[in-house]
Write a protein that binds this DNA or RNA. Structure first.
Lengths: 138, 138
DNA sequence: CTGTATCCTAAGCGATACTG
DNA sequence: CAGTATCGCTTAGGATACAG
């Protein structure tokens, strides 16, 4: 039997399966920039330049690219005001709003457990110095 | 003032800041393999080979690497049973368990919104065919 | 202001071969 | 069984320059 295609027809929507569409969705939303952008947009429309300032360290290219992907997935709505100079606002669609709690939760969890995790890293790296096993960088 | 270092000392734990440790934590957990691994381990210890089978499409290298990073961050506990052949089990630490609900939530959201998102992609790509703007792949 | 285009480097990942 | 080591490709992403 062919489990590689027509997954929706067979009702097999399972992110554990390589060829399942839900895997591409998971890959699309499970990354830092998407997470921060959903979080940043939760209180209403934000302009491109403002997003660039809020997401410290993101390049214009990455921001454009991530927003474009989110727009394509129907998570974000892009509104262009035909003024001079142009003004573009990004906001969450209803679909985007449905994932706000999850994304905000992840951001908050990351912030809340920094001391714990930094300590764990220090401990691991210390033990790895004695017992030589490969150490992931950051 | 220097906002680039000693963030913990100043109490500025903010994932929006490039140099903040919480940003590295966010980057570490906000990716598909980590999400699926936390989800896969939520019901108890699982062996390496079993994880490789469950996470369809992951290579041995990526699996080892991701598990190592999670172990270093204190999210996962690695237990080696000195048998022949060797048997290694991975389980969630208490820290890991504290993020299960979020990760499972993301996996479920991805699966639940597949039709909606696939439709959005089709719509976007169709409009992009007429009005030529760059289209993200996947 | 909000992008696009290009170049270039670094990281991710698959494939393969090998080990205790 | 559970890894390590290496190669080589593909992609992500930073820097820079330029445009509507």
């Amino acid at each position: 039997m062919d489990t590689m295609s027509h997954l929706r027809e067979f009702g097999a929507v399972d992110a554990y399966l390589k060829e399942c569409a839900s895997r591409t969705v998971l890959a699309a939303i499970a990354n830092k920039w998407t997470c921060l952008l959903v979080d940043a947009l939760q209180d209403g429309p934000v302009r491109f330049g403002e997003l660039r300032r809020r997401l410290d360290g993101i390049t214009q290219k990455s921001l454009t690219q991530t927003l474009r992907t989110m727009e394509r997935d129907g998570v974000v709505v892009r509104t262009v005001y035909p003024t001079i100079p142009p003004r573009v606002e990004y906001s969450l669609s209803e679909l985007g709003q449905s994932v706000v709690a999850l994304m905000a939760g992840i951001r908050r969890w990351s912030e809340d457990h920094v001391p714990e995790i930094m300590a764990a890293r220090d401990r691991y790296d210390l033990r790895a110095a004695e017992d030589p096993r490969p150490v992931p960088v950051d």
